[in-house]
Every structure is written in structure tokens, then in C-alpha cells.
Amino acid sequence: MQTPENRSKCRSRVLISGASGGLGKAFAVECASRGWDLFLTDMNAPALETLAAGLRRSYNVDVITHACDLTDLDARLALFERIRVNSLRFWCLVNVAGIDYEGPFFEQSSQQIRTILRLNIESTLDITHAMLKFRDPCATFRIINVASLAAFYPMPVKATYAASKRFLLDFSLALREEVRSMGATVTVLCPAGMPTTPLCIEAIEAQGWMGHITTMDTGRVADKTLNAALAGRPMVIPGWVNRTLQLLGSIVPARLVAALVGSRWKSAQQKRSLDKQPAMP
């Protein structure tokens, strides 16, 4: 079992990817508030450093930052090299970094589609593989992968993204069984929309009351997910409405769900473009 004592003895850390984004930052703050030392990575170096300084001040924890583009293999190798050279050890890995681009498949550029696959799938697997090697031998190794509620359904307009999250969901559940004997656990988080950026908030607003009841603040999600990981639970779906949706989704045939999601998206899209039109005098 992971106890604060053996953790501080080894000074092992939590690695969080996508740490300066909405959910990643919430994980970083929640971990720091629990007194855990951190290793944060994201693209934007100044943002990472500002966050790290804030966490050091507020919670008196040790924070290392490493800014890099995780879709780039060389950047990932440099990250692993830094960890190796400094003999850093980890008892927890939170894979938050992930991306989606607005719009239907054919309207996205091929570069955008590659980036979704590289970040959501390739880099998550690569980091997980490397971090298993750097795990703290005197602690249970906790892996948290951030999938999405979108992982449960084929999602028109988010076809690539949703499928990439499905990949992470299945991968996580299978890996969980493989690493059990190594003293590791895997917890996959499947959140609905979270109000992290103005764009996300606009999308939540566009869904009306449905948006409101399915939306959950990042702080609550991070707290609940870390508790679930410490308890070794396989999956977290924050919010009972979302759990119900997932249940319904699992009963109804996939192509029906896809048709339903598609039509809901269309009406939300229409409402949004209506809102944007200037009011008639």
C-alpha cells in the first residue's frame, strides 16, 4: 500500500502530462494540496513555471517542470532521458494530454488528424511504457488515463477523437489486468464536458440544461479520480447523469447512438449559429 511515509522516503513523484490545461491543472493543484511532489509537463514553458511556483508557495511541495511537445518522438526521448539521468522515481502517472479539433473529419486537415492520433494514443502509450520502468519500487504504481464519455459511443463530428478515447478506454482496462502482478493499477477517467476553456463553456451553454447537468467542475473530477485510483478502481465516470448516459449507451445499438448524437449535435449547432446572429431590430 502507498503510505505517505514510504513515499517521502523515496521522494517519488506524480507525473502529469497536459498539466497547464484545465483538467491537468486541476490534477496538479489537487495532488500538490495532498502534499505530493510533482513532475509537470506541457507545451508552454512559462505557464508551467508560473503554475509550479504557485504550487511550491501554497503547498510546499517539490515540483519539476519540463516543457515539450509530446507528439514529437525526439522530445519524448529527451524527457525520458532527463528522468533517467536524474534518477527520478514515480508512484503515479496521470496522462491528461489530449486534443481535439472542431469540425467533421473531412474538414480537418490531415495534419490535425495525425496530431490527434499522435498525442491521444501514441504519446500516451509511449509515456506509460517508459514510466512503468521509472516506477517507484516501494510503492503501488497508479496509472490514470483520461479518456472521455465520448469513448462509449461512436461520435459524429468527433469521429477520430471519440475513437482515440475508445482506444484508451479498452487499452486501460486490458493493461490493468497485465500490470496487476507488477503491483500497478490502472484507472480510466471518462468525463463529460468540463468548463475549462471559453470554447468548452460555449459548447456546454449551447446544449442548454442538458449541458448544465452533465457538466462537472474539474476540481471535483480530479479529487474523485485520485481517490478512485488510490482505491485501485478501474473506471471513473463523474456525475450520475453521465453514468446513466453511459448505461443507456451500452444497451442501445451503437449505430442508433451515433445517429442520435449526430442529430443532437446538429440542433445544438443551429442554436449556436442563431445565437451568434445579431438580434433583429
Partner: peptide, 11 residues
């Protein structure tokens, strides 16, 4: 209305 964390990681 929604939880927002600042650059320093504060609500």
C-alpha cells in the same frame, strides 16, 4: 459560475 483556476493554480 464554474470553477476556474488561475495561472498560479488558485481558484
Amino acid at each position: 459560475y464554474w470553477l476556474t483556476l488561475t495561472a498560479d493554480g488558485v481558484e
